[in-house]
């Protein structure tokens, strides 16, 4: 028993190391070998960066899948086909945002401000059209610039994905939702699609910084509902946020009582 656990940890450690080395190297190659030399000739810098991130992470998750034989990825077609949408998700693991980037060729999100202060990486995030969450960026005229930029990206077929809990949920509970994304949806006259993520926290456990490549479970993403522009227009944003949160809670409860162990 002890030996099995020991070997499992060693395997997980080695594969995790390999995966993160690929992850980091992939970004470095994208940025310094492919992107920077072509920078002056690029017309739509944000679109190019978003597509590059998407392809890189698609390969990353193909590798994760290959190296984790017991882990199945089940992303429903209606999630894969989302375009020009504002997507609201529950947040379980650091993998959630990069999994979403791997699904959509054009995508933007609201990123914690600390990432923008990382040298070079922060510059790339800005160039890719990601939006900083800091109060100074989301207040005053700068906020209108960001909202107009999001509107433009949605019109170009991109998706905005947001985790309205603001942080990862704990023990399957959904934290209170920030209202911001619902206000953005109203501003952009776009509906909100709700996507339930399951089991990413089992694949990459919070606090462990290690992939569980030996586990047997299904990582899934499912479209559980939506709010149309009219529904958003006719309700207060607090009511829309509450409605969306209740749906997530109900779906998680159903999954738990359904006994499939996937919640």
């Amino acid at each position: 028993m002890f030996l099995t656990r020991f070997f499992r940890r060693v395997i997980n450690f080695c594969l995790t190391l390999g995966l993160w080395v690929y992850f980091m190297l992939g970004y470095l190659v994208l940025m310094f070998v492919l992107f920077i030399p072509c920078y002056s000739r690029l017309k739509a810098v944000d679109a190019v960066l978003q597509k590059s991130f998407h392809l890189h992470l698609k390969v990353f998750f193909a590798l994760v899948n290959r190296l984790s034989p017991g882990v199945r990825f089940a992303v429903s077609e209606d999630v894969r086909n989302l375009r020009s949408s504002i997507i609201v998700c529950n947040h379980l693991s650091y993998l959630d945002p990069i999994l979403l980037v791997s699904l959509f060729p054009r995508q933007t999100t609201i990123v914690k401000n600390t990432f923008f202060s990382v040298p070079i990486f922060g510059w790339f995030l800005r160039k890719a059209g990601y939006v900083p969450s800091s109060p100074t960026e989301m207040y005053g005229p700068a906020m209108i610039n960001h909202l107009e930029d999001i509107k433009r990206q949605l019109a170009a077929g991109g998706n905005l994905f947001v985790f309205p809990e603001g942080t990862r949920g704990r023990r399957g509970r959904i934290a209170p939702f920030n209202r911001g994304v619902f206000s953005i949806a109203r501003y952009c006259s776009t509906g909100v699609k709700m996507v339930l993520i399951r089991n990413t926290e089992r694949l990459f456990r919070p606090g462990s910084f290690s992939f569980d490549t030996r586990g047997k479970f299904t990582v899934s993403m499912e479209l559980i509902g939506s709010l149309t522009p009219d529904q958003l227009k006719n309700a207060s944003i607090s009511a829309s946020a509450d409605q969306a949160r209740s749906l997530f809670e109900r779906k998680i409860r159903e999954a738990k009582t359904g006994g499939d162990g996937r919640a």
Partner: peptide
């Protein structure tokens, strides 16, 4: 700022017209 955006949308509804980007920026202060 979220409330300010909501207020802007209400003002648009009230005036029955869409505001320009410059007008919206002015409102944020």
């Amino acid at each position: 700022s979220i409330d300010a955006i909501e207020l802007l949308l209400e003002i648009e509804r009230f005036l029955g017209t869409e505001l320009t980007q410059a007008e919206k920026k002015k409102a944020m202060d």
